[in-house]
């Protein structure tokens, strides 16, 4: 049993009734990083959706910026127990990117520069639930926070919102990505506190 440390509170505010279980509010934006930060030049950047053999949809940075951009205000919940409320982002809805994609697949693997992966069911990326964002709080997204562009799937724990995203591959079955291989939940709903296996 842990022994309480007299006078220690930690840097967090009180639990907020509006947060998922086990979460604490933070004012900052902690930088989470499991490896070196990839430095990606915009002229080299691309994003692709691989829907099956011979069906790849690809966008350059300019093509992505030319698509309709949406402003998103949302709360985010990191599995390491911090939450941040009312964050603002700008980017392209995945509904826009999947408009011309034909597939029967139900699952996806999200890929990033640097080799990170995370799995998300396709339904959780569609119907206004996910975006490829390139701005945070009105500024270009910093590389430490996933810039040039990251996935934003705010209804799942934030490890699903892959930093430095560069592609989504459709899958017939649900396979684990990086953290899902290393002890974390295949789905990751913060309101049901689906943190671990």
């Amino acid at each position: 049993m842990a022994v309480p440390t007299s006078g220690f509170t930690g840097r967090r505010q009180n639990r907020d009734a509006d947060l998922p279980p086990g979460q604490y509010l933070t004012d900052g934006f902690p930088v989470m990083s499991a490896g070196p930060t990839p430095q990606v030049l915009l002229r080299d950047w691309s994003f692709q959706i691989v829907a099956g053999p011979g069906e790849t949809h690809q966008w350059t940075w300019e093509q992505m910026q030319a698509l309709p951009q949406e402003d998103v205000t949302t709360d985010i919940h990191c599995v390491t127990h911090w939450s941040k409320v009312g964050t603002t982002w700008r980017g392209v809805s995945l509904d826009t990117l999947f408009e011309d994609v034909e597939s029967e697949a139900e699952y996806t693997m999200v890929h990033s520069y640097g080799g990170y992966t995370t799995n998300v069911p396709l339904d959780d990326l569609l119907d206004g639930k996910a975006w490829i964002v390139s701005e945070f709080e009105g500024e270009p997204l910093q590389s430490a926070h996933g810039g040039p562009a990251r996935l934003l799937v705010p209804h799942l724990y934030f490890w699903k919102s892959a930093k430095w995203v560069n592609g989504i591959r459709l899958m017939d079955q649900d396979l684990p990505g990086f953290w899902e291989t290393n002890g974390y939940n295949m789905y990751g709903d913060p309101w049901r506190e689906e943190r671990y296996w």
Partner: peptide, 11 residues
């Protein structure tokens, strides 16, 4: 070192 707050929060 492990520090534990009254509500169980640990660092």
């Amino acid at each position: 070192l492990r520090l534990t707050a009254d509500d169980g929060y640990q660092a």
